[in-house]
């Protein structure tokens, strides 16, 4: 659910605005609303999540009403409406991955990070959650990390531990 408490003002960089403009040009005149999903991705990649203030700003930029942005951002699973860890480990929890050990792996991640699904570690570095099929079912268990959505495939406990260590050192 949307909470309106986090109202820090948001300014978009000129690089970001330039990116928006390039996106809007793809669509016919008057159809700039089509840019909404790609623009939300661009903003989330920079800010880490979509605050109400950021969404309002997007609405203003695309000349649509704020509710049109909220309803889209809350419909799609990739958009974060709350602050997340710097790295969000998104593990596939759907059938085919479970046949090859995804559920056990999620248990292991919960233990390793010491936080429950959708919670952020105290140092702000990590959160994790189960997501639905990532179209990598033959290479499961699999997880992805945004904003570039790098895939990590054929995972086991050791590989996940190494990954977490590497990210900690970054």
């Amino acid at each position: 659910m949307l909470k309106v408490e986090e109202q820090q003002p948001v300014e978009f960089s000129s690089a970001l605005i330039e990116k928006f403009e390039e996106i809007v040009k793809r669509y016919p005149e008057g159809k700039q609303k089509s840019a909404l999903l790609p623009v939300l991705h661009e903003v989330q990649a920079v800010l880490g999540w979509l605050s109400p203030a950021a969404m309002d700003k997007i609405a203003e930029y695309l000349s649509i009403s704020p509710i049109e942005v909220y309803e889209v951002a809350s419909f799609y699973s990739m958009y974060f409406l709350k602050p997340q860890g710097k790295y969000v480990l998104e593990v596939c929890r759907t059938g085919p991955c479970c046949l090859v050990g995804a559920e056990k792996l999620m248990g292991h991640i919960e233990k390793s990070l010491g936080v429950k699904e959708n919670e952020v570690t105290p140092d702000g570095l990590f959160s994790w959650r189960g997501v639905e099929c990532l179209a990598a079912c033959g290479y499961g268990p699999v997880l992805q990390i945004g904003p570039e959505y790098t895939f990590y495939e054929n995972l086991d406990e050791k590989k996940v531990d190494d990954l977490i260590q590497d990210l900690r050192k970054k």
């Binding site: 790609p38 649509i64 419909f75």
Partner: peptide
């Protein structure tokens, strides 16, 4: 011909063709 790539937002239903078109128009799927 101009060819563009449009990202979705994470929703299985957007594979259904009319939901996909809604999504491409910047709406819920």
């Amino acid at each position: 011909l101009e060819l563009y790539v449009q990202p979705g937002g994470g929703a299985y239903i957007c594979g259904e063709e009319t939901a996909l078109l809604e999504s491409l128009e910047g709406k819920r799927g």
